[in-house]
Simulated scan of single mutants.
Amino acid sequence: MKFRPCIDLHQGKVKQIVGSTLSTDTADVIENFVSEHDPAHYAKMFQRDGLPGGHVIMLGPGNEEAAAQALQAYPGGLHVGGGITADNAAYYLEKGASHVIVTSYIFRDGRLSVQHLDKIVSEVGTDRLVIDLSCKAHDGKWFVATNQWKTISDFEVDETNLRFLEAYCSEFLIHAVDVEGKRAGIQESLVRHLAQLVTIPTTYAGGARSIDDLQIFRRLTGGKLDITIGSALDIFGGSLPYEEVLAECGKAVN
């Protein structure tokens, strides 16, 4: 199990928000934390501590410059997502991203667009593509949520569909929509489900708030999945010490 760091960007600033509140009306967004530091500060911290494979997520427009700043501060060390398309993916790779992350571009009107999937693969290759399968429970099953997590697609996160997508990408990033940003603990049923099915590197995001949660996560996954933690970390205004997370995940702070 690896700890994958994150840098979430909203309105050009490093923030931690409740993702399900993101909308076109910024007054509705619930902010857990707004940093006084720029994105490069965190990127350099993660580089210093030997944490590759974290993700920079642009939450809405106006974050392109901030994302580029983070990528240039840690060349080859970060993935980038949020509004990525076949038309702009190369730009972010040139700025220093190791991978690009896609969701909405390949899920159109609640359905998977194989045409768009093929198009972005032709631009960046499978080895530099990460597919974000933000999951929401519906009728006892897991489905991809799109459109700022407001639209439940018809794409079930099951063994058949995961095998299909694994041929198109190098990793999955999977947000647990119902608990993301709420510091409510990991969504254990989703974690178990994913650990049984995925065969490529997969990072889970959502709800982790304590060392106990990390230990539960390790037990449920057998170390098969990686994990990211956002608003619970003390570097993002939470109470969970960043240093303790690194120690639990086998990384010592320099």
Rank of each mutant, 00 (worst) to 15 (best):
K13D: 08
K13T: 12
V18G: 02
G19E: 01
T21G: 01
L22G: 13
S23F: 14
D25A: 13
T26I: 09
A27I: 05
I30T: 06
E31R: 15
N32F: 14
N32Q: 15
F33P: 00
V34K: 11
E36L: 08
D38H: 15
P39T: 06
A40K: 15
H41C: 05
A43E: 02
K44C: 11
K44Y: 11
M45L: 15
D49R: 08
D49M: 00
G54T: 04
L59V: 13
G62A: 13
E65N: 08
A66R: 05
L71G: 13
L71K: 02
Q72C: 08
Y74S: 07
P75R: 02
H79G: 04
V80E: 03
G83A: 06
I84L: 07
T85A: 13
A90S: 12
L93N: 02
V100G: 00
T103S: 10
F107S: 10
F107Q: 10
D109A: 13
L117K: 01
D118C: 05
K119V: 00
I120S: 02
S122Y: 05
D127H: 15
D127C: 12
R128I: 08
I131Q: 05
H138M: 09
F143S: 11
S153M: 15
F155V: 10
V157R: 03
D158A: 10
R163F: 11
R163I: 05
C169F: 12
S170M: 06
E171Y: 10
H175D: 04
V177P: 01
E180P: 03
E180S: 11
R183M: 06
Q187L: 14
Q187A: 09
L190I: 14
V191D: 00
H193Y: 06
L197G: 15
I200H: 13
P201I: 09
T202M: 12
Y204K: 12
S210V: 13
I211H: 01
I211Y: 03
D212A: 10
D212P: 10
Q215P: 07
Q215Y: 07
I216N: 06
F217L: 03
R218T: 14
R218Y: 08
R219H: 05
T221D: 01
T221P: 03
K224P: 01
D226W: 05
G230S: 04
G230A: 04
S231T: 09
D234W: 11
D234P: 05
G237P: 10
G237S: 06
L240C: 10
E243W: 05
E244P: 08
A247H: 12
K251A: 11
A252W: 00
